[in-house]
């Protein structure tokens, strides 16, 4: 009878919900709808951009049209080697981010895990975290010169402190129940670290990475203000010297798109690794 009761429970409450197989036409329609919805906000922005000068609120000489920007973008790409600027910026961001996160993960973990460490270092972390990287430029120039290293140091600074805070806030929230369960199953300290704490920390590592990525791109322009020859920040800086507003637009859009692309990649990786997570948005 027990099995009957269980079987009933299984049938009535626990049958997994599977989507009904739709026709091919229906699938195509759904895909199209999906793509349309994705593109919609961009189309709205483009439309507003076109309409903005017509409202008379801004001087149309100061706002290039999307088409002008696109032409400029192509021109920069072909004649001025914009791809090299993109590459340089991407390289700096990646390097600074990688160094920052590689250090932020263990330190954030230690701060989150050990109460004394937290009490000791929390004020320091918060002090340095709230310093805007731009304010540090003069010092960075003094100590690291104006080479590649100076820019990477700036990005490292930004990535490290934003990453460390996310990491340690996440670790603090670790549910002790899982550790207790593992202990009662006979796990050693080393096994608890490897099999319980690492998987629980992984989501926070990925969040730290994403937050740090955003901050890194934001700091990029600042870091490329340090007498950079190439890089998207330098493109914008140079264009501003010559009042080339369309180039400024192209550079800004370039940064935005690259950042968006990298964030997308991270999200795909996160979704793969964190299939098990319960979330509102699948």
């Amino acid at each position: 009878m027990t099995n009957d009761a269980l079987a009933q429970v299984a049938v009535t409450r626990e049958t997994p919900v599977r989507s009904r197989p739709g026709t091919v036409a229906r699938k195509v329609w759904q895909l199209g709808l999906h793509a349309g919805l994705r593109a919609l906000p961009w189309l709205i922005v483009l439309l507003l951009w076109y309409l903005l000068p017509a409202t008379g609120l801004v001087n149309s000489a100061l706002v290039p049209t999307p088409w002008q920007v696109l032409v400029k973008f192509y021109e920069q790409l072909t004649t001025n080697r914009l791809w090299l600027d993109m590459y340089m910026s991407l390289q700096r961001v990646t390097l600074g981010l990688a160094c920052g996160i590689i250090l932020a993960v263990p330190i954030g973990f230690l701060l989150g895990w050990y109460r004394p460490a937290r009490m000791l270092f929390d004020p320091l972390v918060n002090f340095f975290r709230s310093l805007p990287p731009i304010a540090l430029i003069p010092l960075v120039i003094v100590y690291f010169g104006i080479d590649e290293l100076a820019k990477v140091v700036m990005l490292f600074y930004a990535a490290f402190f934003s990453g460390v805070i996310v990491m340690y806030e996440g670790i603090v929230q670790t549910n002790p129940l899982f550790i207790r369960v593992a202990r009662t199953l006979g796990a050693t300290d080393e096994e608890i670290f490897r099999r319980i704490i690492v998987p629980l920390a992984l989501p926070h590592v990925l969040t730290a990475l994403r937050v740090a990525l955003g901050v890194s791109w934001a700091t990029l322009v600042a870091s490329e203000l340090i007498a950079a020859q190439r890089g998207l920040g330098a493109v914008i800086q140079n264009a501003s010297n010559y009042f080339q507003i369309d180039t400024i637009y192209a550079g800004i859009i370039c940064i935005g798109l690259l950042a968006l692309l990298m964030d997308r990649c991270l999200r795909v990786i996160a979704a793969r690794l964190l299939q098990w997570q319960e979330r509102i948005v699948p």
């Binding site: 129940l177 207790r180 369960v181 009662t184 998987p199 629980l200 098990w276 997570q277 319960e278």
Partner: peptide, 13 residues
């Protein structure tokens, strides 16, 4: 000594 906790403690990952 196996322990069954009130909140199950099933590992979500």
């Amino acid at each position: 000594r196996g322990v069954i906790f009130q909140d199950y403690g099933v590992f979500p990952w």
